[in-house]
Design a binder for these strands. Structure first.
Length: 310
DNA sequence: ATCCAGGCTACCC
DNA sequence: GGGTAGCATGGA
C-alpha cells in the first residue's frame, strides 16, 4: 500500500468478499471507490471529529487496511465502524445453503453472490436523502447526483494529497432554494422532496432516533407519511440505514426476476410480490433482494471507480 | 425521436 | 381499494 499511513489487519472468520460487496451497487457502496492504480478500495470516514481516509484490500481471509492521517490515533474506533459497515462476522452459510435447496434459481443466485454482505451506513440522515434521489433514475445518475450534493453542500477538506468534500450538510440543503438545488445537483423533480425532507429532519419531525426504536412495519408507515418517500424508498432507508433484514425493495430488476422465476412471466401486482416475498424469504428478505438484484444486473455496466467525494 | 432508469404523488374511477 | 399521467434528467 502507500506505506505512509497507519496499518491494520482484519481477520475474516466467515466467507466474505470485499469485491462482491462493493461492486454490488447497493446504496452504501457508493461511498467507496476502487483506486485502480493503487489496487485498493477507498472511502472517507469521520471519527471523533477527524476525517480519515481508509484504504482496504482483501487477501484471502485477511483484509489489509491503512488509514490517514497518521497522527490520528483512532484505530480501535475505526475497526468498530468498519465492522458496523461491512458486518464481517455475519455468517449466512446456513441460510444460504437452506435456500439453495428451495429452487434452482436461488441456487444460481447464491453461488454468484458468495461473500456478499448488506452494508450499513454510518450516516442515517444522509441515507434518507440519498434514498430519495434514487427514484425513477439510473444508477449512473444516482452517483452523479450524489457527487454534486457533496460538491455543493459539503465542506472541502484535505487528507494527505486528497481534497474531498464531506457529506452534504443538511442545514445547507434545507435553506437552498429549490430551483438552485435542482440545477446545481441535477435532481430534477426530486429537488423539492430532498429540500422538504431535509427541513423535516432539522425540525426533528423525521427522527432517526425514533426510527431506530420502531419495528419494520411501523417504521415504514412513519417514513411513508413524508412526501417523496414511498414503498421502495422507505425499504432502502430501512435496509441500509437501519439494518432491517425483512424489507424487500421492489425495483424493475427485482420485479422482472420475480415475475420470470416465480410467476411464469405472468402479470403480477406489486402487492402480490410483496406478499410472496414475505412468505418465501421471511426475515431474510433483504439479503435475497440484494442478491437477486446483483445477479440480475450481472451483465450491466458498473461504476465502482466513480468517486462521489471529489 | 422515443423509451427507460433502484418511483412517487395526485387524481381518476 | 386499484389504475395511471406527469414528473426532470441524461443515456441508449
Amino acid at each position: 500500500m502507500l506505506n505512509r499511513g497507519n496499518k491494520f489487519k482484519i481477520e475474516l472468520k466467515a466467507p466474505f468478499s470485499l469485491d462482491k460487496t462493493l461492486k454490488s451497487e447497493q446504496c452504501p457502496a457508493d461511498l467507496w471507490f476502487f483506486d485502480e492504480n493503487q489496487n485498493y478500495w477507498v472511502s472517507y470516514i469521520p471519527i471523533e471529529g477527524c476525517w480519515v481516509k481508509v484504504m482496504l484490500r482483501q487477501n484471502q481471509n485477511i483484509i489489509d487496511g491503512e488509514y490517514l492521517p497518521k497522527e490520528c490515533e483512532i484505530k480501535e474506533k475505526l475497526l468498530e465502524k468498519l465492522h458496523y459497515i461491512f458486518q464481517f462476522e455475519d455468517n449466512h452459510d446456513n441460510v444460504l445453503s437452506a435456500f439453495s435447496q428451495k429452487d434452482d434459481f436461488l441456487a444460481k443466485v447464491v453461488r454468484y453472490c458468495r461473500g456478499l454482505r448488506i452494508m450499513r451506513d454510518l450516516n442515517k440522515e444522509y441515507r434518507i436523502l440519498e434514498a430519495i434521489i434514487t427514484q425513477n433514475t439510473s444508477i449512473r445518475m444516482i452517483k452523479i447526483m450524489q457527487r454534486l450534493l457533496f460538491l455543493n453542500f459539503g465542506d472541502m477538506i484535505q487528507i494527505g494529497d486528497d481534497k474531498i468534500f464531506t457529506y452534504p450538510k443538511i442545514e445547507k440543503i434545507a435553506e437552498e432554494n429549490v430551483i438552485d438545488l435542482k440545477k446545481k445537483c441535477k435532481l430534477g423533480y426530486r429537488a423539492q422532496y430532498v429540500k422538504d425532507i431535509a427541513q423535516q429532519i432539522l425540525l426533528g419531525n423525521l427522527s432517526s432516533q425514533k426510527l431506530e426504536k420502531m419495528p419494520t412495519e411501523e417504521a415504514k408507515k412513519y417514513l411513508m407519511s413524508f412526501r417523496g418517500i414511498g414503498k421502495k424508498v422507505s425499504d432502502l432507508i430501512l435496509m441500509y440505514g437501519f439494518g432491517k433484514g425483512d424489507v424487500f425493495p421492489l425495483d424493475i430488476w427485482i420485479k422482472k426476476a420475480i415475475k420470470r422465476e416465480y410467476f411464469e412471466s405472468q402479470e403480477v401486482s406489486e402487492k402480490e410480490i410483496y406478499k410472496w416475498a414475505r412468505e418465501y424469504f421471511k426475515e431474510h428478505a433483504s439479503l435475497f433482494n440484494l442478491m437477486i438484484f446483483l445477479y440480475e444486473r450481472r451483465g450491466e455496466d458498473r461504476y465502482y471507480n466513480y468517486c462521489v467525494w471529489r
